[in-house]
Design a protein around this nucleic acid. Structure first.
Lengths: 333, 333
DNA sequence: GAGAAATATGTTAGCGCTGTCATAATGACT
DNA sequence: AGTCATTATGACAGCGCTAACATATTTCTC
């Protein structure tokens, strides 16, 4: 679409130097005399020259692009990861090229293929589930790959996140130590969200070790949301009014649960304790701060980028970076 | 970073055709005999060929990229716009290349420059405020430009959004018609968020026309958030306990205000009415659905892409697309 | 069955940049 | 003055693809 845009050649002519010299000035690479640099820079300024990255990529077989695959933009946690990615990228000249998979592995495969077409410096994905074709493409391309959020499996290259299984387990231990015994679980569709399921499994393990078991369990057949949390807790309480703590698949669901209690006149914590996951702002701004597990999504994105940029080659050793989590006592459990 | 990746030439050799024929198959362009197509396709499959977009861009001077500039990822409305953009892009083969400006015009300028370097098919930005240099780059490049969210000014090419001034005005009329007279305004930093200011101005106009005026006004000196809304309403009520309706700069702030009322034991609507802006899910899942104005962010992103893709050239007539808004009566005002 | 029209394929010449290797100019140290 | 490094610049080829223009080949038309 660009038209008559000035090229390196134009700048070189105006500055009275060769093209490669201009290229060196632009990329800050190789030795350049101060006088020459100044001359070139002013020529660039005069012409309004903007380098053509496509040409650059082609010539150097490698782009200043980083592919980012997110499962969804509806769930606030992924924009937060993206924010971390962007913040680490900001100072580097790299640009994120994003794709959204909608939790679908075939879609992911298609997007990986189109991202690879840009010869990105690295690709950031979510989770460990990929099609064989995706794995093959990634292997052939040799680009660096980070798999985010989760560390409960074997990564392709590096993994950055936290153990959701352990987080679920610790949440269970925490609640047991606080005296809760009659557990209910309020979840959402976990075919897509493998991590919610891992937390659930961790929770069940903790309960089993204490000789307990989930007394009630209700899962909403769709993505998590405040409304789903509200309605799903309502459904569970209708069937099992005797539980003393509801563990939610995440904070969105838990905030909905809190609203349900408000409406139904159930005393939160005294009558029914609520526990979430993520540590979202909204949960902490409730009249009673939500008891939850705080994960650091921003940090996950940021660290992933930093690690990926450390080296262009995949290291021989796969790397797993645990960004940890923190039990937030809150006031609801 | 890619290495020994097969090229068009390899595919062409294996399929026993010329390069251009492979190129045509890949791009689905020009007439190709079915037999040839099949042969080429299976060669592509066999080699695991992935086209190099940088080369394609360079040769055709135009990429399958769409530049997207967002002011922030922290405010949920922008990921929603991005979702709309992505949804419209999904079927087209275009990929969004994103940049985040942090509401800073100089940052925006830098990002526009790096996006332009990829020769994107179009650029999507937010708002009408840009530096002169940004405008110049955009003008020189001749790429299509959409300015989103707002339609209260003159666009570069097309604008998609709603009149925030009118929305503020209508919200004011609505509240006045419901009998509210003692207005308070709870806002956030609007140097960055020009649209919040426009709504505020619209509100003031409505009040003035009715012979009314804001009795109280409190602005938080930072970005909007639930916590800011809670604390800022608290501050306002401490100074002006007599107002009967609080208009918030957006739903995040208003939800915080609701939480404040809960904590302080203020009867929402009877004693103090609350009114937001955006129509976020969280507001509608409150025990009392929030009274607000619903804008359609997803639609804004989607329509912008559709309009931009209609033609590669800027039309002679600037276009303004009003995606409208809707007063949501709710239960808090 | 000659010519027009449509369909299918190929040839050539770059797109704008950077890697590689060469060359020139300067200083540093014998 | 001569060797060696160091710094500064340039020539040239080519990255992988596609636009533009041929050139076959087939199908239709009267």
């Amino acid at each position: 679409m660009l038209q008559d845009m000035p090229t390196l050649t134009d700048v070189a002519k105006l500055a009275g130097v060769s093209e490669i010299t201009v290229s060196r000035v632009v990329r800050n690479k190789g030795p350049i005399a101060d006088a020459t640099r100044t001359r070139v820079l002013s020529a660039i300024e005069k012409l309004g020259y903007v380098p053509n990255r496509a040409a650059g990529s082609l010539a150097s077989s490698g782009s200043q692009l980083m592919g980012v695959l997110l499962p969804s933009l509806s769930n606030i946690v992924f924009p937060e990861v993206l924010r971390g990615i962007h913040s680490a990228l900001a100072s580097t000249g790299y640009q994120p090229l994003i794709g959204v998979t909608d939790y679908d592995l075939k879609t992911e495969q298609g997007i990986v293929s189109s991202l690879l077409a840009w010869q990105p410096a690295a690709i950031i994905m979510t989770g460990f589930d990929h099609t064989d074709a995706t794995r093959r493409m990634l292997a052939n391309s040799r680009v660096r790959v980070a798999e985010l959020m989760d560390i409960d499996a074997d990564p392709i290259d590096i993994a950055v996140g936290l153990s959701h299984r352990r987080a679920g387990f610790d949440a269970g231990r925490h609640l047991i130590s606080r005296g809760y015994r009659r557990f209910g679980y309020v979840g959402h569709d976990w075919d897509a969200d493998r991590r919610a399921r891992l937390r659930y499994e961790g929770l069940c393990t903790a309960l089993a070790e204490a000789g307990l078991t989930l007394e009630a369990e209700q899962r909403f057949a769709g993505p998590s949301s405040t409304i789903a949390g509200r309605d799903t807790l309502a459904a569970m309480m209708a069937k099992n009014p005797t539980i003393d703590v509801a563990v939610f698949s995440n904070d969105d669901m838990a905030v909905g649960g809190f609203f349900y209690c408000l409406t139904a006149g159930i005393a939160v914590k005294e009558k029914l304790a609520l526990f979430g996951f993520n540590g979202l702002d909204i949960g902490q701004s409730l009249p009673m701060p939500l008891s939850t597990v705080r994960s650091n999504r921003f940090l996950i994105g940021k660290i992933a980028v930093e690690k990926l940029l450390e080296s262009g080659e995949r290291p021989t050793e796969k790397q797993i970076i645990d960004t940890g989590y923190e039990i937030v006592a809150g006031a609801t459990a």
